[in-house]
Simulated scan of single mutants.
Amino acid sequence: MRNLKFEYLYRDAGNYKIFGSLYIKNNLLLPLDYAEFQIRQGLIDGEYFYPQELGINLFSEHLNPSNIFDGWYEFEQISETEEVIKYDFQWQDFISRLTRE
C-alpha cells in the first residue's frame, strides 16, 4: 500500500525557508488527486494552514527572532510513498485536524 507524504514549508519575514513533512497512513486507499483535492479544501486560500492544528513547529536556531511570523505554513505537495515510516496520522485524523472539523 502506498501511503502519503504531506510536504510543507515555513517562510519567515526574511524569506528564509524551513521544509518539513508528515506521513499519513492511506488506510482508505485514496487516489493522490483526490487526497490533494481534500487537502486544498481545508487550506486557507488553497495553500496555507495553521501548524498548531497538526502539532507542527519548525522554528530553529537559524531563524532571526525578529523575522518570525507565528502564523501560516505553506502546503508544498502531497505524494505517495513506500518508505517504511512511523505514521504521524491516519487519513481521517489528519483531514479533520486540517479542516478543524
Rank of each mutant, 00 (worst) to 15 (best):
K86T: 06
F6G: 02
G55L: 05
E82M: 02
V84Q: 08
R40F: 01
F69T: 06
Q38E: 15
N27K: 05
D70M: 06
S96I: 03
Q92R: 12
Y23C: 00
F89Q: 03
I78M: 15
Q77V: 11
Q90R: 12
D33T: 09
W72I: 03
F59W: 12
A35H: 07
L28W: 00
E83S: 14
V84I: 09
E82Y: 03
Y16E: 10
L28N: 02
Y48C: 02
G46I: 01
N64K: 12
L4V: 01
G42N: 15
W91T: 13
A13E: 06
D45Y: 05
D45L: 09
G55M: 02
I44V: 06
N57C: 13
K17D: 02
D70Y: 08
D12M: 08
P51W: 10
E7S: 15
F89Y: 14
D33Q: 11
E53G: 07
P65K: 05
Y34R: 08
Y16V: 12
Y8S: 12
S79D: 09
D70E: 08
F59N: 03
E76F: 01
T99L: 01
Y10P: 07
D93W: 05
Y16R: 14
Y50C: 09
G46S: 06
P65L: 02
E83Y: 08
K25E: 14
R11N: 03
E53Y: 14
I24N: 09
E74I: 07
L28G: 00
E53H: 13
D12L: 11
E47G: 03
D45H: 11
Y10G: 09
L28M: 03
R40L: 02
L32H: 08
E7R: 13
N15H: 07
Y10W: 13
